[in-house]
Write a protein that binds this DNA or RNA. Sequence first.
DNA 1: CATATCCATGGATATCTGTCGACTCAATCG
DNA 2: CGATTGAGTCGACAGATATCCATGGATATG
Lengths: 117, 117
Amino acid sequence: MAIDLELTPKTKRPNGEPCCEPVVYPDVERAQAERMAQIAKALGDPVRLTLVDVLRKHAGKVCVCELVPLFDISQPTLSHHLKKLRDAGIVDSERQGLWAYYYVIPDALEELSAWLR
Amino acid sequence: MAIDLELTPKTKRPNGEPCCEPVVYPDVERAQAERMAQIAKALGDPVRLTLVDVLRKHAGKVCVCELVPLFDISQPTLSHHLKKLRDAGIVDSERQGLWAYYYVIPDALEELSAWLR
DNA sequence: CATATCCATGGATATCTGTCGACTCAATCG
DNA sequence: CGATTGAGTCGACAGATATCCATGGATATG
């Protein structure tokens, strides 16, 4: 790894004293962290991440039956993954006749993307 | 939601025929999707995401005992979260005496960040 | 109208995850 | 050396997750 760190030296605290006060605090608010973590969690599966990748570029063009053969999972399992993405607010779907068309909600990934940057 | 989609019309397939061929394929390779999903999964918890946020800006300045009071979790649980981040290749640590200093590995988040963009 | 298709839902099950308390181990201090 | 501290590991356990099969509901086709 070999990274150049300047370690802030510490001294062992005297007997019985409470631990050192935290000197740093997160920049992200708790609610913001929870929102972003929820998005990240939904993306934390290869199938779902790939789904988002496909849907981002082919909104309105793909029905679920065309997504199934892209993966080694059953159709109900794919439906469950899509539901997870829906619940996380990343995608939504539009039904037309027998078919369901999914698309990525614009800006759904923006907050996380900006934080990562 | 109200997004402007142009849906590609489909026709029900004839009896007994195999499902429509997929017309789209993911742009991400399977291995790339797995790498990014692993990173996203590690970030998919508010505690870990906040840890990364803190460590990104205070590398080498914070020991674990200072991180604990930032959250409502026990020290072993925090250690466990740090291990998850280590296993995902997001952070690493340097031990000096009694203290362990964590830091975010440069570029660990780059691939996911670029994909999200 | 009967039947087949697309997709979602529900139940079952094995595995993974987050959390804790108890413990271990190395390093420090007295 | 003996006691204490920082931090990682272990075992346990409740809750979440991924997956399947079977089913159900709506819609299209003939």
